[in-house]
Design a protein around this nucleic acid. Structure first.
Lengths: 218, 218, 218, 218
DNA sequence: CATGAATGAGCCTTCATTCAT
DNA sequence: AATGAATGAAGGCTCATTCAT
């Protein structure tokens, strides 16, 4: 990650290389484990997933998992968080590129649908997270809500602006933001369960239209 | 299960009485267990719930649970199913009473919101069900989908009629039905998480308006 | 344990019998487990002892252990405590029976030596306890010290009386009590390690004489 | 281990120097590790101590420990042995300096009390060793007994001489040696547990007097 | 020589399910 | 029919030891 200028020609270079190598290996392992955990948690859910299975999926020994994460719970949260970060980044980028309130809302819907179309595990992971056992609720529920609220806020801000500019009717923006968020989830669910026979574009158009008319353009 | 041949008339009468008693007790126990399971599963989720806890909540011994249900899994499914039956019944009744497409859709939303407002456990139980481990997926996912589809179909039929009668624009009715179903879930979720500070009536109005405008009245 | 007077001749008797039976079984199991734990802990020490081994020694399944004790740690403490209680009881009884300061000190030594001669596991269990890991120190060390102090106090009281009556020279009684206690331990250790080829009576006489001369008879 | 044949004189010199360096480094590392192991084992006991902790305390990597010792067990034994060697050396020196049977016994007690007063870790390490798991008993118990016997023999020889010279009554010398050894331990234990409020000199005097009267001077 | 990442055996504990009473 | 004691499989986690760099 960080380039280092060394004075001594060999020793410096060696040290630099060693460090970099280690960092690379660590990053690689971390990513590998997360990727595996990702798949396993999506497939099984938190409780049914076993560390043995995650290890197997990651191609490492059980003990190795604990070199990178202190507990099953933390692997889970890391996987969840990483997923969220990726979605968030994509969504934000898409929203910035898009013009107009309608453009932004459509972009939101489209990004989500396209993203989850390719990353089904991700969606299942998130989806499971909502109905999580109460025992870990304090840590867990907070995280899930946080991630969800991040997304909702993006929409909320757009809607607030839209209301101020009278681009839509004076709707309760936060509630509407939640609604749009969940409606998008709804469409994704249908697609992933194979319930929707429509094309992706059709589903995007459908979701947008429903939303756009719902919140009342002028 | 086992047929019993009785010789005398009195013994027969006795058997009949006994049977009836048994049946009553059985029904009573079954209901008691289900009610307990219901609360516990809603509180803990499937994996975190223990048979011991359910037994305690039901006021019976652990072994007794197995006299009425063959496994934890089946208790869970029975609880889920019973919940669904109750919601279904309420919804159907409300839909019958309501007049007009708009009236029926509003009734659908209202029924759900009011019902879950009072039966939070029920909602949590259902909500958890969506993210259920894949191990039991074959049995379980099918059940959850079935329950969900039952509700969606009610909406779908209303929408189909509405489209035919040109009361709404020609939307893809099934997809719209799913959307309305999930939008309702969304509002309930917000209310139950304490996120919505609006009155129940406001939320009902909000959800209906969004939907109604969304599917495009004329 | 507690007798119950029942009014109904049969039902009462049945209930009473059932209760008693259960209590007996519970007591039996508890004793059985403790006895096994006792042997295993004496043989292996706390850390090297496994629950599996204790279960095997007790003739029950691993899970059964947890029906009677909440953790390995608690089994250990219970074993230790029971041992201590037994020794204490014996010692106290012997001290009461004995006459005179010299008689009581001799009785203390004799009781210990005879008891440990027959209950070697017990001694090893206690002996191990002194060098116990610091992790559990708070709970554990306190218990061990408590047990030890109980014994030392018995001796201390005798010595105090003896000093007051000028039966021995004005020695620091508590320190002397500790010394007598540990000297007894010392002799036991030698016997148990097979280092002493003397008869039990000889060892008792030897220990007493050393002590008695040490604290200074007149 | 492996002999190396050197061709040129310079290379030989270099090798010699390298060897010396290596030996120095090896000695240094060995001492460093032992010193660390020493502290950690005293603090935690054998089982609770981890190789990682010892490595950290020694300022080396875990793997390095295995370059100097083949196993945890052997590090433990080496630490124990080294401690014993130090005590033995001190004791022998003190005994040689002291005159008369009484002087020697007093010297024995004094040396031990003073030494442990400053090296509490050492005492705890030794103390723990007595209650060691039987699994490694063959190797371990033998070592502990050996160390203990070494000390006891020193006392035994003094006592034998004293008996021969009729400086004390004709007591069983080995048993008395054990007793003196354990009585010293007892006093140390009391001091280290903070139970004794007496000065070091008082405790030395107390222990000596008890012993000296016990074995019966004339 | 030194390192520390990787390994995997092993342990405590939980809990669904069974079965004798 | 009801009980709850007993079972034992399974899982998260630790840590001594190895080995590629």
């Amino acid at each position: 990650m960080t380039a280092r200028v060394s004075n001594g020609p060999e020793e410096g270079a060696l040290t630099a290389m060693t460090r970099t190598k280690r960092e690379i290996v660590t990053e690689f392992r971390t990513a590998e484990i997360l990727e595996a955990a990702y798949r396993v948690f999506a497939e099984r859910g938190f409780d049914e997933a076993t560390m043995a299975e995650i290890a197997r999926a990651a191609g490492v020994a059980k003990g190795t998992l604990y070199l990178y994460y202190p507990s099953k719970q933390e692997i889970y949260e890391a996987a969840l968080r990483q997923s969220a970060v990726e979605v968030d980044a994509r969504t934000k980028a898409a929203l910035e590129r898009a013009a107009g309130v309608d453009g932004k809302i459509r972009a939101f819907i489209e990004t989500k649908l396209r993203f989850f179309e390719e990353h089904r595990d991700f969606f299942r992971l998130t989806e499971r997270a909502y109905g999580y056992p109460a025992r870990h609720a304090s840590q867990h529920a907070r995280l899930v809500d946080e991630l969800r609220l991040g997304q909702v806020k993006l929409l909320d801000q757009i809607l607030q602006q839209a209301v101020r500019r009278k681009a839509v009717r004076p709707v309760r923006t936060e509630a509407a933001a939640f609604a749009i968020f969940d409606l998008t989830r709804s469409i994704v669910t249908q697609r992933l369960r194979g319930a929707s026979r429509a094309t992706l574009d059709d589903d995007i158009a459908f979701a947008f239209e429903l939303t756009w008319k719902g919140i009342g353009y002028r």
